[in-house]
Simulated assay, not measured.
Amino acid sequence: MLKHHHEIHRTDRIGWLRAAVLGANDGIVSTASLIVGIAAANMDQAGIVLAGIAGLVGGAMSMGAGEYISVSSQADTEAADLAVERDELDRHPQHELKELAGIYVKRGLDAELAQRVAEQLTAHDALGAHARDELGITHELRARPLLAALASAAAFSVGAALPLLSAVLAPASGRVATIMLSSLVFLAALGAVAARTGGAPMLRGAWRVVFWSALAMAVTAVVGYWFGGSTV
């Protein structure tokens, strides 16, 4: 008896994973950088927390809106391409069949087999075949603006809440260092989990996130110290 062979693929995660990782990463980095810069300028805790909350709310709305607009543009392009392809299939079905067969020949099938495959796929779902093999549009990778926007905004909020919580709990004497270090730990964990979910090496995923995030926070800390003259 043949055992059922189940393969795990990750391409169906690309849309929401990209938006969620980008949102969470940006939430931690931008909010931590904002808080670090303000803390380094010797702002009191109430002011730091207020700025952090404002950054969280504004950033989440901005990320959600930006992601929705960006992915909507992609969805509009896909819809326009599909409309053109649908029209071509109605007006020139034989030409489109020949075009589809030519694609399969370029991928390695002989002409006779390519023609048979094209005919069968056209009979089953002509538009789907052209969308996938001519335009590169698949169900798994189709643009989904609302899902991307919600994932991005929610992930940003969760990410931003972490350095904000650190700012609330950190002692005044070491507030900047505490926020930076805790945020880098969160970012390293996020990078590792994102890499693991996407099938990439976890250490590499964590390192690239930590490096650039540390640079961003260091720059804002320097700016805060410079303009605020803090000794925190």
Rank of each mutant, 00 (worst) to 15 (best):
L56K: 04
I38V: 14
I53W: 11
A40T: 01
D90G: 01
I53Y: 06
H95P: 05
L56M: 14
V71G: 14
H130T: 01
L100F: 02
Y104W: 06
A101C: 09
V117A: 09
G59T: 03
E119H: 14
G37E: 02
M63Y: 08
A83L: 11
E67L: 05
L121D: 00
T77N: 06
R91P: 00
D110H: 10
I35Y: 07
H130V: 02
L89A: 12
L34E: 07
D125H: 03
A129Q: 10
A32I: 02
Y68A: 03
L34V: 09
L50I: 04
E85F: 00
A129M: 05
A65E: 06
A123L: 08
V36E: 04
S62P: 07
E112D: 15
E96V: 03
A123Q: 05
M43F: 09
R107I: 05
A41E: 00
Q74M: 07
I53N: 01
A54K: 13
I48N: 10
L109K: 05
R107A: 15
G58V: 07
L56F: 08
E88V: 02
E67N: 14
V105H: 11
L127R: 00
Q115C: 08
H95C: 07
E96P: 00
A75C: 12
L89M: 12
I69F: 04
A46E: 13
Y104L: 07
T77C: 12
E112V: 09
Y104T: 05
I53F: 07
S33E: 06
A114I: 12
G59A: 09
A32C: 09
A101N: 07
Y104I: 01
G55L: 10
D81K: 05
K98N: 10
Q45N: 10
G47P: 06
A41T: 08
R116P: 04
H124T: 11
S72V: 13
M63V: 06
M61R: 02
E96W: 04
L109A: 11
E112A: 04
R91D: 06
H92Q: 07
